[in-house]
């Protein structure tokens, strides 16, 4: 009962958080100079006063700010994120169109980084002052210190441009290619390699550091000493006993990192013309497509909040001692 109660509290707070996200973003974006009428006039190569006024009226931009805000928030809670100014299509529809491309890029990068990073980290932790450990630390630092868009540009020029020409230059698949599903999948994978390599460098750095540190922590713990004292081989100690606890923080972090991942995706998608939410968000800023931008911000907040609640629930199920919803 108490369990359900506190879950209810979490959900309620999640809703309050979403409301706050909506109000803050809406206010911020509406404070910026210029509005969609300017954009539409701009791409049309000019517009008359009457046209600008009619555009503003059509989008309700001539109404007082608080009215616009109330009507927007009201609609969102009925599941309506509004219409994109630019495409005149429902924002939710446009988001779902792009979501899969971003998820493909982000999740592939994340999993690659987690597996490879944990592997390197665990390896390095076994001998914290050895060559391999230093190498992993250095590798992590290199990955972490490179500006992600710069890495992308360099890879593009070195590997995708003639004369090397190993990878496609832009996009997610080649429309001109006709072939079966299998060819399509291969084609997507081919397009995916460079963006994933670029995006995963940061996370590879992050997870190898995290798992190295966490493994070092765990390897110093009493129960590991006990295991060693029992005369178990180092391999068994590390992989059977320490690893399970050592990778726990890695897993926890992975679930909570969507908002960070999304930031990297904006840059990588821009470099590789990847048709995902990141480029959509960036373009929407340039087009001052307020409903679109608000929709994306809302959506990413929603995903993080839901992920938080789910993590919370699973924590409770695993470990009944946790009482409050606060995590550190």
């Amino acid at each position: 009962m108490q369990f359900l109660n506190s879950i209810g509290q979490r959900v309620l707070f999640g809703l309050v958080l979403l409301l706050a996200v909506l109000v803050l973003n809406f206010t911020l974006i509406h404070m910026a100079p210029g509005d969609p009428a300017d954009v539409i006039a701009g791409e049309m190569g000019g517009a008359t006063e009457e046209m600008m006024a009619s555009i503003r009226k059509a989008y309700g931009l001539d109404r007082p700010f608080h009215e616009q805000l109330f009507s927007y928030v009201g609609k969102v809670f009925q599941g309506d994120l509004g219409y994109s100014y630019y495409f005149d299509q429902p924002v939710t529809e446009l988001i779902f169109e792009r979501l899969s491309a971003t998820l493909l890029l982000v999740l592939t990068s994340l999993f690659l980084a987690i597996f490879l990073g944990t592997f390197l980290g665990v390896f390095a932790s076994q001998n914290p002052n050895g060559m391999l450990s230093h190498f992993v630390t250095l590798l992590a630092l290199l990955g972490y210190s490179l500006p992600v868009f710069w890495t992308g540009i360099m890879l593009l020029i070195l590997l995708a441009a003639p004369p090397v020409d190993l990878f496609p230059i832009a996009g997610m698949y080649d429309v001109t290619k006709d072939g079966g599903t299998f060819d399509y999948i291969l084609d997507v994978l081919h397009h995916l390699i460079l963006p994933v390599v670029t995006l995963s460098t940061i996370y590879l750095a992050f997870y190898s550091r995290l798992s190295r540190a966490s493994m070092l922590d765990v390897l110093g713990a009493d129960y590991i000493r006990t295991a060693r004292a029992k005369g178990l081989s180092e391999r068994v100690v590390v992989y059977k006993h320490a690893l399970r606890n050592g990778v726990l923080p890695v897993v926890t972090f992975a679930g909570l990192q969507f908002s960070q991942l999304f930031s990297g995706a904006v840059l990588v998608e821009t470099v590789f013309s990847w048709p995902g939410l990141g480029t959509l968000a960036f373009d929407s800023i340039g087009r001052r497509d307020t409903p679109m931008l608000l929709g994306i911000l809302f959506f990413s907040a929603l995903i993080v909040i839901v992920a938080n609640i789910l993590t919370d629930i699973s924590y409770r199920l695993i470990d009944p001692r946790i009482k409050t919803g606060m995590k550190t």
């Binding site: 593009l156 003639p162 020409d165 230059i169 001109t176 013309s273």
Partner: peptide
Amino acid sequence: IIIKIIRDASARVIAMEKKE
């Protein structure tokens, strides 16, 4: 006729060079 939308300026040029 296929219009390919490529946002990066360098990538557009390379696409032409590669006959994509």
